[in-house]
Design a protein around this nucleic acid. Structure first.
Lengths: 180, 180
DNA sequence: TGTACATCAGTGAACGCGCGTTCACTGATGTAC
DNA sequence: TGTACATCAGTGAACGCGCGTTCACTGATGTAC
């Protein structure tokens, strides 16, 4: 597996670091290789082109986040409690890596990884939909997609300050409380 | 007022048309002037640089949308009914111009207009907050900001198909029904 | 153990390309007298 | 009414720059015999 190669990792790590300050479209290969401490040609030893790299970067971020969420609710039955717990795991996970804004929000503007982002968002929406269904909501799939968008917005706000914001989370949960 | 000049308008209109198919970062000045039917130099007669143009483009879009929303609820008292009506006006307004995805969502990735987008989103959130306050929600400002994000997501979904989606709107409203 | 060859990550100069921006110039319209 | 000058939107060739990508080469490691 090529993803295990140290230089591959170094290039991905460099990208995640750069994405803390810049949007994906602003990150050039020059910047990436400089941050990773390798020559420009080395980039093309590990990635056929820039697009493939951006997809890999996004996948890396998303897989880690999804794993956190899935683990956090592994033993729970679908329902509002599981939705709470999943949301908290998601927000906490986003706070660990600061590249959230670029990868969660701005990634949607990158033609190169548009499809990938859409697929990944659908995964999260599907996870959430189970809970909305158990909670007896009408249109659980659509509610789930909207809820994911709302949670992503909350993550972007929190990453802005770098700290969990309990008032914000309370506001978020208010949208799913006392509903049919 | 320079915005009234026909060529200025033509350049903005060209941008709005191009934004239906591409994200803002992908739209080059070559494309803009070709779409507007003017020479490249003409662009710089009306805009000092690309950033200023993008801000003007976003402002144009936002002003129109805000006007629609404000007019739709002008005679109503704050509360859930006004929030419904404002949301519907917002979604209907987005369906008229197809550049929504670029200007609502992907615009946040553009360093050039980041601040502008933030200010505009805050305006919408402020409008919505009045209603959440009247509805007795805790954290009405934060709830409003999350709600705006959710509504923007709904707009992007609708513009994808080009048609209003009543199930989607029902799902959206479910988040604010039967709440304290 | 020693020699010859294969493999492959890594290097960095060089490439062509498209971009945003500049600028000297044109031509139509307005103003002064 | 006619002449001289000023103003200003519009033009398009030319610019320098940074980008993604290529490629001939290096050097270390592995393999065969």
């Amino acid at each position: 597996m090529p993803e295990a190669h140290p230089t591959y990792r170094a290039l991905i790590d460099a990208g995640l670091r750069l994405a803390e300050q810049a949007s994906l479209s602003e990150i050039s290969i020059d910047q990436i290789v400089r941050a990773a401490g390798v020559a420009k040609g080395t980039f093309y030893v590990h990635f056929p082109d820039r697009s493939t790299y951006l997809v890999a970067l996004h996948t890396w971020f998303h897989n880690r986040l999804k794993e956190l969420v899935v683990n956090a609710v592994a033993d729970m039955a679908p329902g509002i409690e599981r939705l709470y717990r999943a949301t908290i795991a998601y927000l906490d996970g986003c706070l660990e890596g600061r590249a959230v804004k670029a990868l969660l929000l701005e990634a949607r503007a990158e033609r190169a990884i548009e499809a990938e982002v859409q697929r990944r968002n659908a995964e999260f929406a599907e996870l959430a939909a189970t809970n909305f269904r158990a909670m007896g909501w009408l249109q659980p799939e659509m509610a789930a997609r909207l809820y994911v968008a709302m949670t992503a917005e909350a993550a972007v706000i929190e990453v802005g300050s770098g700290l969990p914001d309990q008032n914000l989370r309370a506001a978020l949960f208010q949208f799913i409380q006392r509903n049919p």
